[in-house]
Design a protein around this nucleic acid. Structure first.
Lengths: 183, 183
DNA sequence: GGTAAATCTTGAGGCTAATCAAGGTTTGGT
DNA sequence: ACCAAACCTTGATTAGCCTCAAGATTTACC
């Protein structure tokens, strides 16, 4: 539930949350393999995953390179497309039945401008995501597949129950065969 | 010059810039191979590179993995350490004589809280950096060394005049020999 | 619950990039 | 400008991951 996520942020008041919640006017339900966005489309919404699981992948010339997952109660979008209002390089696809709420870019930006507490929340969310990306970069730079796997197991062991191994292998920059052999 | 960087931001007024500049009280000059920060230290400052060039690397067990460069007029710090106030995983080292200005975390956070325009600047700076990281992630995920090199050549050709090839090779997740053979 | 599809595992072989090594070139510091 | 150190290049060899393939297992959907 979105309200639960927001209530965990100490400096957001009930008034801030009450100002935010009504902006999530769009509701989306995806079946397995449905797309939330395809490469080439412009992303105009920021999404909250209520339930289900998604994968984010780059449709490269010869293969689909998996760059991330979303599940549980997290925010998700094709970030460069949403922020820069340009066509997405990525596809976002449901791995199972998935329910999402969405806020439009215009409403979201207006909220950031009108509510300093919420602007602070978004700033800290960006910092948190950026720190996560930097951690992730370390993973990708390690030359040994085994150490890349170890780091993911240490950080996100639940992924292995939730996401098909072939996508995790792609995320870890190795083939499914190599991942299977490492286990 | 720091003022030049800030004046390029359309929504920062001269008053905003005047409020910001005096906070950069610390001045640092590094010789070649000097460290701005070593792994294990906590980063309490955000830096602006006035001149020179720096590399950011991860001192891994067996090798130094290069994760980025800073030069010209850019902001730089060990980001996870600065944001989360914890020991840095990274080393920041000067590649030549380098001059920097610094603002303390406390002063910077106070500025973000007191100046909405500056908070907006920082939010957009974070978004910009995050988009760059996502681009960078694509580079790292490409399996072929040749395509990783092509993307860097397309995006930052000047790096090859500025930075020793061995660090660029590490940044591109390949050995100096492989980089040399690709050219 | 049953069936088909998707996914995972295991094996054999090939290829690419890493390693090791040596010579040539550039760069830094005095 | 000189010398020394750092850096870059090229070659030969090796190791590790990918590719291809087939069988086993799990999962999805009616």
């Amino acid at each position: 539930m979105l309200a639960t996520l927001l209530r965990r942020v100490p400096y957001l008041t009930e008034a801030d949350i009450a100002a935010c919640l009504p902006l999530w006017t769009k509701s989306v339900t995806l079946k397995r393999n449905d797309f939330l966005i395809r490469a080439g489309q412009v992303e105009h919404h920021l999404y909250f995953v209520s339930s289900g699981a998604m994968r984010i992948y780059l449709p490269d010339a010869t293969e689909e390179i998996c760059v991330g997952f979303a599940y549980g109660t997290s925010l998700i979008c094709s970030f460069p497309s949403f922020v820069e209002n340009r066509p997405s390089d990525y596809c976002l696809q449901a791995l199972k039945k998935t329910e999402l709420l969405a806020v439009s870019r215009a409403d979201f930006l207006a909220l950031l401008d009108s509510n300093a507490n919420f602007a602070r929340f978004w700033r800290m969310e960006l910092e948190r995501v950026l720190v996560g990306r930097i951690e992730r970069e370390i993973d990708l730079l390690l030359p040994e597949p085994e150490r890349r796997l170890q780091r993911l197991l240490a950080r996100s062991p639940h992924l292995f129950q939730l996401i098909p191994k072939k996508y995790i292998a792609s995320y870890l920059r190795m083939t499914p065969e190599t991942l299977s052999r490492l286990r």
